[in-house]
């Protein structure tokens, strides 16, 4: 049987672990709340933008805007959104599983240190990595999005996709591939745009001819890149919310494990202590018995 001192030492170390995991749980809980709020705050904006595109789409015929042209896919362009830090359960591993399934030539762009490390380790074609802070400033995401869009229009990649952990709820995040470019057609694109949860109000009571200023192609040319940027931004926000909630859940499990381990150890410690005391009493009694 382990000595009481050994058990005491273990109890102490488990207690420390529990304290740390508990603190991390609380930190990620509050960060998660912020990330969720940020993701929610962007919704009216995204909905309105989808709404505008809907009214645009009813007025543009088939244009040959580069975003709308389907090209034979030679090289896929994938933005992998991962976390900077670990300790967030299977979140990154699930994303990497999706990456491993890709066998066709692909160029990778990455957000988050973990993804960068993974891609260099597996020797994939990593074009660029972008640091994005927890608060997710629009500009940091935008530079990533714009680089990809530039490569897309130049033709070095033929698709623009995002692999990210989709935030379903606090307990469930699923790794997802989300195609962004090329847009299959404006109409499909609009129906997919309602992903934020809001309904897209496509039918307008007003069927008069819409006036575009300066003109329709100019509006389309600036609205589409803007929309793509914003969509990627929303995905990154969702990924951040996933990261925080995954970490919170992982830390909660760790904390619970530590607690149950602790109660086991305490029981063991008490038993050992009691055994030692009984032993001592027996010895004393035996000694006094023989001497009398």
């Amino acid at each position: 049987m382990a000595s009481t001192r050994d058990i005491r030492r273990r109890i102490k170390s488990v207690k420390n672990t529990r304290q740390i995991t508990k603190a991390m749980e609380l930190v990620s809980a509050s960060k998660m709340k912020k990330a969720q709020q940020a993701a929610l705050a962007g919704r009216p904006y995204a909905n309105l933008m989808a709404d505008m595109l809907a009214s645009l789409s009813t007025h543009v015929g088939e244009t040959n805007h580069p975003f709308l042209v389907q090209r034979p896919v030679k090289t896929r362009g994938i933005l992998l959104v991962t976390t900077d830090k670990g300790l967030c359960g299977p979140l990154n591993a699930n994303l990497f599983k999706l990456v491993m399934e890709i066998k066709t030539p692909t160029k990778f762009y990455v957000i988050g240190r973990k993804g960068m490390q993974f891609l260099t380790r597996t020797k994939r074609d990593l074009v660029a990595d972008f640091p994005v802070h927890d608060r997710v400033p629009f500009n940091e995401v935008r530079s990533a999005a714009e680089l990809m869009v530039k490569h897309f229009t130049e033709g070095s990649i033929d698709t623009l996709e995002v692999i990210y952990p989709r935030y379903k709820n606090t307990l469930i995040q699923e790794a997802k591939v989300r195609p962004i470019l090329p847009l299959p057609s404006l109409k499909d694109f609009i129906s997919s745009a309602s992903y934020t949860g809001g309904s897209v109000r496509v039918p307008h009571a007003d069927d008069r001819e819409v006036l575009f200023e300066p003109d329709i192609s100019e509006v389309l040319n600036s609205l589409l890149p803007f929309y793509v940027n914003h969509q990627i931004y929303q995905l990154v926000l969702s990924a951040k919310a996933s990261e925080q909630s995954a970490r919170m859940v992982a830390m909660k499990t760790a904390k619970d494990n530590a607690t149950s381990l602790l109660s086991e150890l305490t029981l063991k410690y008490n038993k050992a202590r009691q055994a030692a005391i009984t032993q001592e009493i027996l010895e004393i009694a035996a000694a006094s018995f023989t001497s009398s």
């Binding site: 645009l56 819409v210 575009f212 200023e213 300066p214 100019e218 509006v219 600036s222």
Partner: peptide, 16 residues
């Protein structure tokens, strides 16, 4: 394109 005043009954418009 400059300032645009919108009154009720304005023709549908999308602008930058």
């Amino acid at each position: 394109e400059g300032e645009v005043g919108i009154l009720p009954g304005h023709i549908p418009l999308i602008t930058q």
